[in-house]
């Protein structure tokens, strides 16, 4: 799951440092929207723009957790 998400996001946002622990602060609104779009399309999950919090998008692990939680819901 993590590798798949890293691959998807690397393709969509090639210049964003996905290893960062401060991912949300390094993204702009276009980057945040792109992440929501890519994840909702790939995993068929229902994401709200309010899911794009600094907690959920802190790093790649928190993104993986958000997707896993949505898949369980």
């Amino acid at each position: 799951m993590k590798e798949k998400i890293v691959k998807l996001l690397s393709d969509a946002l090639p210049i964003v440092d996905l290893d960062s622990d401060f991912l949300f602060s390094e993204l702009d609104s276009l980057g945040v929207t792109t992440i929501l779009m890519v994840l909702s399309e790939e995993f068929g999950i229902h994401l709200e723009s309010t899911d794009a919090t600094s907690k959920n998008l802190r790093n790649i692990d928190s993104i993986v957790k958000m997707v896993e939680d949505k898949l369980k819901a």
């Binding site: 609104s29 276009l30 929207t33 723009s49």
Partner: peptide, 11 residues
């Protein structure tokens, strides 16, 4: 327009 797209799609 990009913000409107984000709102209508995700909120």
């Amino acid at each position: 327009p990009a913000s409107i797209r984000m709102l209508v799609q995700f909120s």
